[in-house]
Amino acid sequence: MTPERQKFLNDLASLLVDGSPHAVALGFKVDSVGEGDARMRLPYREDLVGDPETGVIHGGAVTALLDHVCGLAAFTGFGGEDAPATLDLRIDYMRPAEPGQDIIAEAVSLRSRGLVCFVRATAHDGNTDEPVALAQAAFMITNASKAAQERAQRALREGDLA
């Protein structure tokens, strides 16, 4: 990949994460992004706990992270020009995340042809052999997502996302 292309993907990823109020509120960070793959991180925070007895992060926060990382992989899988909408997201919760540990989510776009893209993702807390959750998602380029994308490109050109 050319450095220019990598810069485009990095800019896109930071736009899609730092430009998303909910992703910012939960503290999502982008570790890396490629053509059809992405790695994101959810740093452990007390205010994300779902069960105060155990200190384990709520499944919903893991769901949001997986949704976001899958979306990022789908977006770049489509070449980074068209914004896809999530059709469905399926998650298997393999085990509770270790309290105090960051949750890392890695997604790969398996196939993106035409209007549909299939993504698979893993969430773990350090050891990839012991995943916390597995996810599978499908995305699609829709009229609504195309319209949003045009607004985004216009906003990017004008250098103002607000």
Binding site: G59, T63, L161
Partner: peptide, 24 residues
């Protein structure tokens, strides 16, 4: 709430926030 928005350009709520709400 503003911080539930996933994509400010539509603007649409974050799919993860909606998913988490359904789970709750």
């Amino acid at each position: 709430r503003d911080d539930l928005v996933g994509n400010p350009l539509i603007p649409a709520l974050h799919g993860g926030a909606v998913g988490a709400f359904l789970e709750i």
